[in-house]
Amino acid sequence: MKKLYVFYDAQDDFALRSYAWLVAQPPLWPLEFIPFQASERMARFQGIDDFRRRGPLLGVGDEGGVYAGPNAFIICLYALKDYQEWSYRLSAPMFLPLARRAFELLSTQGRKFSRQMERLDDPKLAWLLEYPGSSSAPG
């Protein structure tokens, strides 16, 4: 991959916050952001409309591969210098359903928090993602 196109729903709060966060991160490859509402730019990607209802965020690689649903969050993390490790961890079957929640936490809580999460072992991290707000994981 040499470039990642990120499509986001500009009328969705979560997608807008994600966009604002992604822009601020040092990327490994250039990222190009295209809102769903920019129909002219969307028209360059034939067939993208089929994926729009899969979520507020879509990733498209420069070869035309579409990453939708939880995979969209993972491919965005994969393209960031500081978060590529996270993309590998979260793509495990255990975490894939929780990828959106993980992405949300990573993108709102800051780098320090993400390092704390990194130190958790898998079951504890899964617990944290599944039951947000509960401070203690089961022993």
């Binding site: 490994l28 990607f45 994926f51 690689g61 579409v66 990453y67 939708a68 994969y78 590998y88």
Partner: peptide, 20 residues
């Protein structure tokens, strides 16, 4: 090395990209 690591997931479907 990190630049050449493949993505952890596979794309779901192709879209055709046209230059514009």
């Amino acid at each position: 090395a990190t630049l050449h690591r493949p993505p952890p997931i596979l794309p779901e479907g192709p879209v055709k990209m046209t230059r514009g």
